[in-house]
Amino acid sequence: MNPPNLLLPDAGGLYCPAGDFWIDPLKPVDRAITTHAHADHARSGSGDYHTATDNLPVLATRIGEAAPHHGHDWGRPFDLGDVRVTLFPAGHIFGSSWVRIESDHGTWGVSGDFKRAPDPTCAAFRPAPVDVWLTECTFGLPVYRWPSPAQVVDEILDWWRECRAAGRPAVLFCYALGKAQRLLAELSRHADETVWLHGAMRPLVDAYREAGVEMLPTRLVSEAPKGVKFAGELVLAPPSAAGSTWMRRFPGHSAGFVSGWMRIRGNRRRRGYDRGFVMSDHADWPALLETVSDMGARRVITIHGNGEALAGYLRDQAMAAESWNLRASLGGS
């Protein structure tokens, strides 16, 4: 006989009635636990925010500080309502956590987003035993298997070198929070050139620098003197800049995109990138399975993304597994 669910989908996130809080709600609520600062997890407008101490500066950069932000150290439990909450590092981006909730009805873990691959910008994922594991499933198909980050960094360096030899700008698209800083940190182990940034990247790069993350020196593209053609230079830009008039500053450029989605050839060709580099801040299929096993959970619930396949696969292995659609809890479209 299963005890009642400690959490249920609500407001685009998860609601815990026993503790009267929401995890990563997309609509304003009274009390939110925020796993990390990406926009599909952290939204402004809630009354009260609980998050990892490390995440405070990044979260403030993203959603402002209109409401109180409470920082909690990893591994140090705190009580909300009738439950005891502990945050553990998730290895996703700087300051990211997964959430453990202990209650009379068992212990639940909520992943937020996570990865198991090494990342110089953030603390590694720390497993802890739970009864029920709510796992993200962004890349929940076995076709998603990541090469080692070291290998991908080598590929990026080779491409940058080729661009330099050909006198072309190397424009590398990546998400502005997490991936950009991870790349700057990885590259700083092999290079010392200044990298040019799209304006949208700057506040977050600054926040990481202030938090002590070592990265390559950066300058804003908008600060470059007029007429500079960026030949052989590396430029980081968010995917939204692709195809915009801003790109006219880089005549003859080669365009790369760093993302787990680049594992699939059609994804890259459809978006017209010359090069796709397979590096993700999410768990790949083997890491999703490995983590299920590391958490020792008796029941798995997939959230965020392609969850049906992973749940089905776990059920084939005689585990209790189901898929929850958090977005549907928003109602409407």
Partner: peptide
Amino acid sequence: SGLPPWLVEDSYEHVGDLAETMALL
């Protein structure tokens, strides 16, 4: 690949190219 046939089908539907799906799996 040692995967259940339904998961190969799901993967193929997602990738959209059978030769590539196999190479990735």
